[in-house]
Simulated assay, not measured.
Amino acid sequence: MVFFTNCQKKETKENTVKEEIKKEEVKKAPAAKVAAPAPSPFSTLEQKVGLTDVTIEYSRPSMRGRTIFGDLVPYGKTWRTGANVNTKVTFSTNVTVNGKNVEKGTYALYTVPNQKTWDIMLYKDADNWGNPKEWDDAKVVASITADVVKMPMKIETFTITLDDLTNNSGVIGILWEDVYVGLPIEVPTDAAVMASIDEVMKGSPNARAYYDAAVYFKSEDKDISKAVTWIDKAVEMSKDDPKFWMLRQQSLIHAKAGKTATAIAAAKQSLELAKKAGNDSYVKMNENSLKEWGAK
């Protein structure tokens, strides 16, 4: 009996310990999380502007029947420009905004909406949830006052775009309700490309290097005589396997240099090769150019 009683006590003690362990495990277990869509879903926009990578991270609230500007977003007050955490803009190189140099890095995008204009600001401290507790004008690295453009339709969900792209610039667009405002940025593409061209030309450029340099000079209205020299070298180096797209650029560069006869000859070659390749777009472009240049 004594042995049996002791065994019962031991078993009861073990069960009690097990129950306590289970209770502790329940306490430590993470609470179940419901999978549901966010009211203001997060979005990332990545865009190459010239040679600069621009990344915009932001959350996107929707109108949902509400009046936005002048109500949900008051006029005359600093707005986080989106929802939740800061809207962040990251540049991979230095850029220029409204004549001011902005060093590469990440910035918060803040705005002060008004009926006819908005103040748009890049703010050095990008780790706030919404507006900073204490606003510091010294942390505004660049700002502009942008005109409000009224749109003919409503944009239900807050949207940021990067448009009007050139080799050297772009515009960060902000759209919501029936409002559009833009923040122009300039990027240092030309300096980087010219340095690259100078370095490559010191060595032994291949056909593609000559082609890229020539096309860049044409597109940026630089020394057209150099562009002619480089595109001719690219075409000559590719003569065993001629490319319709390379000959197309040769025709355009020669035409820009006033060399109509050689432009027509190159366009005719490009046209025939484009037909063989079944590229209707290049066929059409060459036909249009030949007509414009009075080819027979």
Results as ranks from 00 to 15, higher is better:
A35S: 04
A146Q: 02
T145G: 01
Y107F: 12
D240M: 06
P188N: 00
N6W: 07
T111L: 07
A142M: 05
V215A: 10
W129M: 00
K100D: 04
E25A: 11
E19D: 13
T16Y: 15
L72R: 09
P37M: 09
E177C: 01
T44L: 12
A195R: 13
E57C: 10
G76D: 05
K23A: 15
L252D: 03
D280E: 13
D240Y: 09
K275V: 00
M285Y: 07
E272W: 00
E292N: 06
K33Q: 10
G182A: 11
L45C: 12
P30K: 12
A227Q: 06
Q47E: 04
I155V: 10
T145I: 06
T81M: 04
F91S: 08
G203C: 09
E272C: 05
G203H: 09
W118F: 13
V73Y: 01
V149R: 15
A255S: 09
V235F: 04
E292R: 10
S196V: 08
V193R: 09
V73L: 04
G82M: 01
T262M: 13
V2K: 14
N206Y: 02
E287V: 13
E236C: 08
G65N: 03
E134C: 03
E272I: 00
V89S: 07
V181H: 02
E199K: 15
Y107K: 06
P188Q: 00
H254Y: 06
D119E: 10
